[in-house]
Amino acid sequence: MTDTLDAAIADVVGALDAIADPVERYQAMPSVKTKVDDALRGVRQRIALELHGQGKPWREVGQLMGNVSAQRAWQMSRGE
C-alpha cells in the first residue's frame, strides 16, 4: 500500500478514535464500514469501466480484476 493510502486509513481510524465515548465509538464503526465499502464499490466500478473502455473484453477485464468471470466483471461495472 502506498503512504497516501496508509495516511487516509489512519485518518479514518483517527476520526473514530476521536470519539470520546467508547460505546458511541463502537456504534459508529458499522456506519464507517458501510461508507468505506460503498466507496470501494464505486472505485471497483470505475476500474471495470475504464478497462472495458480501453477496448478490453469483459473476459479480460475479469481476469485483470482478480480472475473473475466476464459476467462478474460486467456486474462490477454496474456497481453490483
Rank of each mutant, 00 (worst) to 15 (best):
T2A: 03
T2E: 01
D3H: 15
D3V: 15
D3C: 10
D3E: 15
T4E: 04
T4L: 01
L5D: 07
D6G: 01
D6F: 10
A8G: 00
I9T: 12
I9S: 09
I9W: 14
I9Y: 13
A10C: 09
D11L: 12
D11G: 07
D11I: 11
D11K: 11
D11Y: 13
D11E: 13
V12K: 10
V12P: 06
V13K: 11
G14H: 04
L16H: 02
L16W: 08
D17P: 00
A18P: 05
A18W: 09
A18F: 03
I19N: 01
I19P: 01
A20T: 06
A20Q: 05
D21P: 02
P22F: 08
P22K: 10
P22W: 05
V23R: 15
V23Y: 11
E24C: 02
E24D: 12
R25N: 04
R25T: 07
R25C: 02
Q27V: 10
A28W: 00
M29L: 01
M29D: 00
M29S: 01
M29E: 02
P30T: 14
S31K: 13
S31V: 14
S31Y: 13
S31L: 14
V32F: 08
V32N: 07
V32G: 04
K33I: 05
K33F: 03
T34A: 01
V36T: 00
V36A: 01
D37S: 13
D38V: 11
D38H: 14
A39M: 14
A39K: 14
R41T: 12
G42H: 11
V43K: 10
R44Y: 02
Q45G: 08
Q45E: 10
R46L: 12
I47W: 07
I47E: 10
A48I: 11
A48R: 05
L49E: 14
L49T: 10
E50L: 06
E50T: 09
E50K: 10
E50V: 04
L51S: 02
H52W: 03
G53N: 13
G55N: 02
G55Q: 02
K56P: 00
P57E: 04
P57K: 10
R59G: 12
R59F: 08
V61P: 01
V61S: 04
G62V: 07
L64I: 09
M65D: 12
G66M: 08
G66A: 11
G66V: 09
G66N: 09
N67H: 11
N67Q: 08
V68D: 07
S69F: 07
S69W: 03
S69C: 03
A70S: 05
Q71N: 12
Q71C: 09
Q71F: 15
Q71P: 08
R72C: 10
R72S: 08
A73D: 12
W74I: 07
W74F: 15
W74N: 14
Q75E: 04
Q75A: 06
Q75D: 06
Q75V: 01
M76A: 07
M76E: 07
G79S: 11
G79N: 12
E80G: 05
E80Y: 13
